[in-house]
């Protein structure tokens, strides 16, 4: 979707503010949001792509005014409400008014190391790749209203395939619970001039990872 998340190449966001690597959180509530987001994911109501879609579906004015943990918290509220686990009434009360639906899937503290170490690999058996390393490809003018991982700045542009990563879960369908639909995943490299036009840094190239449905032969 052409949502607020798609900021690559946009102007006007100001300076970057570096921080020391020992800064991990800026408030206690950020830690709790990290924890409840990961713990709630284990309930199995949604997947990684659906959670990203919940965040990017925030209204642009909300998204740009929120810190990233606020975006996570708002996204989590949406996901839990959609799953039927919480209601607006409960959020207003600050207390549960009904029991949870999937309490049997609650992650205990002892299971946390194993859950985090396992992660969620996305490579799957899938179709053989159509493109080969070195092929010139053009990204499609792909602008679905739903979730996609083709950034706007890289639409309709010619680049070169530099890596093939096997077949991976396709976010455009997985985010909408329409199946994992594994598709070959490639790294495609573009010159900055191709992406950003005259005046682009001549020493710069940019790579994206792109699923096969995003690409066509150049």
């Amino acid at each position: 979707m052409n949502g607020p998340q798609d900021v690559g190449g946009r102007h006007g966001f100001g300076a970057v503010h570096p921080e020391d690597e020992t800064e991990r959180f800026h408030a206690e509530w950020e830690k709790r949001v990290l924890g409840i987001t990961l713990a709630s994911g284990a309930l199995g109501h949604w997947n990684l792509d659906a959670s990203r879609h919940a965040r990017e579906s925030l209204a642009p004015a909300v998204y740009y005014n929120a810190s990233y943990y606020e975006i996570w918290l708002r996204g989590l509220e949406t996901l839990l409400e959609r799953a039927g686990e919480i209601s607006q009434e409960e959020l207003a009360e600050g207390h549960a008014l009904r029991p949870g639906l999937r309490a049997e899937r609650r992650v205990g503290a002892a299971a946390v190391p194993e859950v985090l170490a396992k992660g969620g690999p996305t490579e799957r058996p899938g179709p053989a790749p159509v493109f080969a390393i070195g092929d010139r490809v053009r990204t499609r003018n792909h602008q679905p209203t739903g979730h996609t991982r083709l950034p706007g700045y890289a639409r309709g542009q010619c680049g070169t395939v530099t890596a093939i990563h096997g077949a991976h879960v396709y976010p455009d369908s997985n985010a909408h619970f329409e199946g994992e639909n594994p598709r070959p995943l490639y790294t495609v490299r573009f010159t900055a001039a191709e992406l950003f036009g005259a005046g682009a840094d001549p020493t710069l190239s940019v790579s994206i990872d792109a699923w096969e449905p995003y690409l066509e032969h150049a």
């Binding site: 709790r32 309930l43 839990l80 959020l91 600050g94 999937r102 609650r106 503290a109 985090l116």
Partner: peptide, 25 residues
């Protein structure tokens, strides 16, 4: 307040174990 409200609801419903949240942090 907002984060605390959501954690409270999830804990009361038995969906989230606060000790697991601590372990993740």
């Amino acid at each position: 307040a907002r984060a605390r409200a959501l954690e409270t609801i999830l804990v009361e419903k038995g969906l989230v174990d606060p000790a697991a949240v601590d372990a993740i942090i």
